[in-house]
């Protein structure tokens, strides 16, 4: 709980940080889609190397990615157990009593684990290197063509950026409330079921109350400064694509096409 890093912006000066958010978003989408083609280990290897290069360029520490991955470990363990019980193909790795573990169960879990890891790496590349404000601008610009078919581009962008903006706040708030309740003798780790439910309630109720309070405060503050979603707004920052931005998108597109190729023809 202490150090949730998923979705957090890391202020740093790197070529990736300076890139156009639109280019980063498009590149991320390409590579994310690429992951969903069954391109096998070679394909994932290629993506891994490419994403690692971006991570190194962005000066992100591997430990940062690892911490973002940690909360997923529980899910993966759970998945491994289910796979172990259900999948009965491949070689038998070992047998305990009437239960045997098959190689395919492990392989298939590993496969998902690798995809998950890649997904987290890719999204972290975007969120850790893009200021929430730039992200909004980027999303809004990308959605602009869709305003013709009545997609509220600006509102969606604002929504996403506010959500992103509130993640660290809510985490902080959760920790604070946890501490306050722990001071009152709440034990979030041990205890009987009834105590556990009470402990979780003592956390969730204040969290909801404060989240609503924050939302209301923010809404009032925005309104007080004359914000009206439908109005035409001017911009202080104009996004501009450079050569390196096109290069990034081109690279991501190549990966996507490559993966489709591998999945189709190999």
């Amino acid at each position: 709980m202490g150090n949730i890093t998923l979705g957090r912006y890391i202020p740093m000066d790197s070529p990736i940080h300076r890139m156009d958010p639109r280019a980063k978003i498009i590149a991320m989408l390409f590579v994310l889609i690429a992951i969903f083609f069954r391109a096998g280990w070679i394909g994932y290897g290629v993506i891994f190397v490419a994403v690692s290069i971006v991570i190194i360029l962005a000066k992100l520490k591997p430990s940062f990615i690892w911490r973002a991955m940690k909360p997923m470990l529980f899910m993966l363990t759970f998945l491994l157990i289910i796979n172990a019980l259900v999948i009965k193909t491949g070689n038998v790795l070992f047998t305990i009593g009437s239960f045997s573990l098959y190689s395919d169960a492990v392989l298939s879990t590993l496969y998902i684990a690798v995809r998950l890891l890649l997904m987290i790496m890719i999204t972290t590349c975007l969120t850790a290197t893009t200021k929430p404000l730039d992200m909004t601008l980027g999303i809004e610009d990308l959605l602009k063509p869709f305003t013709k078919i009545k997609v509220p581009a600006h509102e969606i962008a604002m929504l996403i950026s506010i959500a992103l903006r509130f993640i660290p706040d809510l985490i902080e708030e959760t920790q604070r409330i946890m501490k306050a309740q722990e001071s009152r003798g709440v034990d979030l780790k041990e205890g009987k079921l009834k105590e556990k439910i009470m402990a979780i309630l003592s956390l969730i109720v204040p969290l909801f109350v404060s989240a609503f309070q924050r939302a209301e405060d923010l809404a009032n503050a925005m309104e007080a400064r004359g914000y009206a979603p439908g109005e035409k707004r001017t911009r202080y920052r104009i996004l501009k694509m450079h050569g390196r931005d096109y290069l990034l998108m081109f690279g991501a597109l190549c990966i996507l096409i490559g993966m489709i190729g591998i999945a189709k023809f190999l």
């Binding site: 708030e173 604070r176 306050a180 309740q181 009152r184 309630l201 003592s202 204040p206 109350v209 404060s210």
Partner: peptide, 9 residues
């Protein structure tokens, strides 16, 4: 705590 009113539930 500082601002303990947030812990009421």
């Amino acid at each position: 705590f500082q601002f303990p009113e947030y812990q009421l539930f």
